[in-house]
């Protein structure tokens, strides 16, 4: 380090020359000129020339489509594959109708709705006679096939400290659900 200019660019050492880099690394410097980089200039404001529209036609709204209240209007195109249903749907609608994206309540309600949705879908699958299978469908059997233990022991992995939490987070709702069902059953028998 140069003692006089600790934070100047000149203090850098160990940067190979352009010629050396070019000979060692395929394509080195091919995009040196920012004008060759696809993200330059930063913003381009144009309708793609393959489009037949200027503003896309407004898609029909099959239900009052939940949307961020920060938007001036409903976007011309939107997803319809996750219509809000059941309790989770009611919570989602509330989150959108009442709170802007700036409010923690907006996201916390959406998070809660996701959790409720998971439970609703699990119950629905059970009613349909095709209950979720936490053993085959979580892929946990891959532990054996893909060398779970040795994969984790090798090298210097730091994520292994929290791996034991995963079965708890996945398994606890099943255990709690089973326990609750058993309690209900016992109470009904009495």
């Amino acid at each position: 380090m140069s003692a006089t200019t600790p934070y100047a660019r000149e203090a850098r050492t160990g940067i190979p020359s352009a010629d050396e880099l070019r000979s060692r690394i395929p394509g080195w410097g091919a995009d040196l000129d920012p004008a060759d980089r696809p993200s330059y200039p930063r913003e381009i404001d144009a309708v793609p020339d393959t489009a037949h529209w200027h503003l896309p036609e407004q898609q029909e709204e099959a239900w009052p489509r939940e949307r961020s209240i920060e938007h001036a209007r409903l976007t011309p195109v939107f997803g319809t594959s996750c219509p809000p249903r059941g309790l989770s749907g009611a919570v989602r609608k509330l989150a959108y109708a009442r709170y802007s994206e700036a409010r923690a309540a907006h996201w916390l309600l959406l998070l809660a709705a996701d959790r409720i949705d998971v439970k609703e879908q699990a119950a629905l699958a059970l009613l349909r006679g095709r209950p979720d299978d936490p053993v085959t469908q979580t892929g946990i059997l891959g532990e054996r096939r893909y060398h779970g233990l040795s994969s984790r022991r090798r090298g210097h992995r730091v994520d292994t400290v929290h791996h034991p939490l995963d079965p708890v987070i996945v398994g606890l709702p099943w255990i709690a659900g089973g326990w609750a069902a058993w309690r209900l059953l016992r109470r009904a028998r009495r």
């Binding site: 896309p56 489509r65 939940e66 949307r67 961020s68 920060e70 938007h71 409903l74 976007t75 011309p76 195109v77 939107f78 997803g79 319809t80 594959s81 996750c82 989602r92 959108y96 994206e101 959406l110 996701d114």
Partner: peptide, 23 residues
Amino acid sequence: MNPNATAVGGIYGYSHTTGGYDG
């Protein structure tokens, strides 16, 4: 196109935060 939020646009499988399109 993402009515659900003012961020990004629509993305498949990013659920209700990016337009409610399935994966």
